[in-house]
Write a protein that binds this DNA or RNA. Structure first.
Lengths: 129, 129
DNA sequence: TCCTGTCTTAGACTTATTCTAAATTACATG
DNA sequence: CATGTAATTTAGAATAAGTCTAAGACAGGA
């Protein structure tokens, strides 16, 4: 964890480590406020500004990506490699869909656009099971 | 315009007509606040709440779609048929990409998901010309 | 006219996020 | 060790998008 921060050129601090623990852990797609809540369970003095600053820093340094998929809220994704997203209509929950699960064709027809990245955003219902 | 509202089961009022004129006009992908600003140029007494109510009503009635593509802001799109979006990194401007320009394959592999709709979101730079 | 339901309004409220200015900490160097 | 400087963190104010509320305006029917 500490090593991960250093590898990305991020000066480690206790606060940053606490954020990293939450956001690189098991919890997929937390929002900034969710991260703040979790960080404060272990480290109650951490301020909101620090969490936001740290998340933005992590995004700058390529440790996280930020997705604007949910109305009014950005969510953070520890999967920084390209992939797609499925959003459950009922719960609002967001699931990663592996890059190779879908193929997008026809990009070469978009002459006016220099496409640097893309993702497919799917909406629907997750099947119980 | 009036006919359009009626066809969608929307009781026309001066305020709603003013919003419709802006949002079904030449201006692609305005945000709610942008719509409010434009409406007020012709009709300065219209309240913010009315604009938001009206936009949500239009979305309910299928006259518009709402997209959450830009950080912290929903934008409204008069193109209600399925299509994709290209977002210019530099300007933040959003362009519609016709449905048939791209093909997405591999949906049948997503057994856990009942996909009801999808779109491809592309980011990059629009080529000058 | 009166009732009822629909619309609109101003402004308060909420939520997500950024900003600010001050306090704290961490080093590096003399 | 003392100290200056830069980086970091903090609390809280500020901002922005959007919703809610309560009151008033308006329209159409009995």
């Amino acid at each position: 964890m500490l090593a991960t921060l250093r590898q990305h050129g991020i000066q480690p601090t206790p606060q940053r480590l606490a954020v990293a623990k939450v956001v690189l852990g098991r919890d997929r797609h937390p929002s900034a406020e969710e991260v703040w809540a979790k960080v404060r369970r272990r480290c109650p003095t951490v301020s909101r500004a620090t969490v936001y600053n740290t998340l933005n820093l992590f995004v700058d340094k390529g440790l996280l990506t930020m997705q604007v998929l949910r109305e009014g809220t950005a969510v953070f994704d520890a999967e920084v490699r390209p992939h797609h997203h499925f959003i459950d209509e009922r719960t609002g929950r967001i699931y990663d869909v592996p890059w190779d699960a879908l193929q997008v064709q026809g990009q070469e027809s978009l002459n006016h656009y220099d496409v640097r990245e893309l993702q497919v955003v799917l909406r629907g219902r997750r099947r119980k099971e």
